[in-house]
Structures are given as C-alpha cells and as structure tokens.
Simulated scan of single mutants.
Amino acid sequence: MRFLLFALLLLLAGGCSPRTVEVMQAPPAALRGASYIHAVDLSLGPDAKREVAAADAKVKPAPSYVGMPFATLLPQLLKDAAAQRGMKDGRALTLTVEVDHLNVPGAGSSLVGRHDRLAGQVRVEDSRTGQALGSFYVDVDQHFPGLIGLIVRGGGVREKLASAFVRHVLDQLAPAAAGQAKAGTPR
C-alpha cells in the first residue's frame, strides 16, 4: 500500500513539473544586479490571439492581477517581479515577448488530459541603443491529470502560468536569491 501511495505521489509530481527554457543567446552576466525592465513589448501569434481572447473572456474585471486582461497582466507581472528581485536601476532593458501559446483548458478538458501551457520567445534589448542582449524560449507546460490533478490545479490557472513564465524569464536576467527561490513573482 505504501508503495502505491509513493508511486502516485511521484506520478503527480512528475506530471506537474516540466518547465523548460531554451537559451539561444544568453544575456550577459553584467546585467545581473545592474539593470531594470524599462518596457515590455508583448505580441501574440495567431494561435495565441485566439487562446488569449478565450482566456480573457472568462476573467471578471477586478483590481488585482486576477482581473487584468492578459496583455496587461504579463507585462505588469514582469515589471513587479523584476523590482522584487532588485532590478530597479542601471541599464534599461526592453523585453519583447512573442507568445505562441496560452492554453487554459476548462475543468472538463483538464480532467481528460489537456495541458495548461504558456510558451513564447523572449528577446532582451538595451532600451537606449536597441542592442540585442539575449534571446530565449520559455515553455511552461503543466499537466494535472485526473481528479486529484484537477484539485491540485485549483483556480487562477492563467495567473499561475504567467507567474511561472515570469520566474523563468527573470531567472535568465536576475536569478532569485536563496530565500526567493519560490517567491520570484508577486502574489
């Protein structure tokens, strides 16, 4: 019986954790602690436009991250989380985020195996000169299969995906301090 419980926990943990960053051009180490996010340019691919519109249609306006449209949510999370990590002054950066996918399936679709996913290309540029400083692809793919997975998934999925995406972006620019490992984004 203990073995079955242990195997179930491993399956749940394994199904919830795959998150990937593929670096094409690593941002220079000199940016760490010596830069801030001046601007975030967000663009949506054709699939992402439909997916974002569908996700935003389910959101009820509220004065917090939960009530923001995605086009406001992601840039705001990036700037707020960067400031929390100490990215407050120095070289001004522009992040160009090209979102390919935002999948936030409903509870029924999630129950039968659809994944929560936010993926896109991130380019880092010097805001003043336009110089390319880095480029990477972030793919946050969370899978919560079955009834237990649905309970673990909970609500606020769009915001959780955006927060995980932001953590991966900022890990490339300003890795979290030991005490900030999980706290890289605002709540």
Score class of each variant (00 low, 15 high):
residue 105 P to G: 05
residue 87 M to C: 07
residue 109 S to T: 06
residue 134 G to Q: 07
residue 43 S to C: 04
residue 102 L to H: 03
residue 97 V to E: 01
residue 46 P to M: 06
residue 135 S to D: 11
residue 155 G to F: 12
residue 30 A to L: 07
residue 118 L to H: 02
residue 68 M to F: 14
residue 177 A to D: 15
residue 151 I to H: 07
residue 178 A to P: 05
residue 77 L to H: 02
residue 51 E to M: 12
residue 116 D to I: 02
residue 12 L to V: 14
residue 121 Q to R: 13
residue 1 M to A: 15
residue 150 L to T: 13
residue 116 D to K: 00
residue 2 R to C: 08
residue 136 F to Q: 06
residue 129 T to E: 14
residue 83 A to C: 04
residue 113 G to S: 06
residue 102 L to Y: 05
residue 142 Q to D: 13
residue 167 R to S: 07
residue 71 A to E: 15
residue 163 S to F: 00
residue 21 V to W: 02
residue 31 L to W: 08
residue 102 L to M: 10
residue 138 V to E: 00
residue 62 A to E: 15
residue 25 Q to H: 10
residue 99 V to S: 03
residue 102 L to G: 04
residue 86 G to D: 09
residue 83 A to V: 13
residue 173 L to F: 05
residue 63 P to V: 10
residue 43 S to H: 04
residue 19 R to F: 04
residue 71 A to P: 00
residue 23 V to R: 11
residue 99 V to H: 01
residue 94 T to P: 02
residue 10 L to S: 09
residue 56 D to V: 09
residue 54 A to S: 12
residue 140 V to F: 00
residue 6 F to A: 15
residue 105 P to R: 06
residue 73 L to K: 01
residue 3 F to W: 09
residue 123 R to S: 13
residue 50 R to L: 11
residue 16 C to P: 01
residue 134 G to D: 04
residue 58 K to Q: 15
residue 38 H to L: 06
residue 19 R to T: 12
residue 151 I to W: 10
residue 50 R to D: 12
residue 49 K to A: 12
residue 81 A to Q: 06
residue 151 I to V: 15
residue 124 V to G: 01
residue 75 P to Q: 10
residue 160 K to T: 12
residue 183 A to G: 07
residue 98 E to W: 05
residue 130 G to R: 07
residue 36 Y to M: 05
residue 70 F to C: 04
residue 161 L to V: 09
residue 17 S to I: 08
residue 135 S to Q: 13
residue 172 Q to M: 14
residue 93 L to S: 02
residue 145 P to H: 06
residue 129 T to C: 09
residue 81 A to S: 15
residue 25 Q to R: 15
residue 32 R to P: 00
residue 130 G to E: 11
residue 4 L to R: 09
residue 36 Y to E: 06
residue 102 L to E: 03
residue 47 D to P: 01
residue 30 A to Q: 11
residue 6 F to Q: 09
residue 17 S to H: 08
residue 147 L to S: 10
residue 80 D to S: 13
residue 129 T to H: 11
residue 27 P to N: 08
residue 178 A to F: 08
residue 80 D to P: 03
residue 8 L to K: 03
residue 33 G to K: 08
residue 171 D to L: 11
residue 151 I to R: 11
residue 87 M to V: 12
residue 140 V to G: 00
residue 136 F to C: 05
residue 122 V to P: 02
residue 106 G to M: 09
residue 95 L to K: 00
residue 170 L to A: 04
residue 173 L to H: 01
residue 48 A to N: 03
residue 63 P to S: 11
residue 60 K to P: 01
residue 4 L to T: 05
residue 58 K to L: 14
residue 81 A to R: 05
residue 166 V to R: 01
residue 179 G to F: 14
residue 163 S to P: 00
residue 88 K to W: 00
residue 81 A to W: 04
residue 55 A to T: 14
residue 64 S to Q: 09
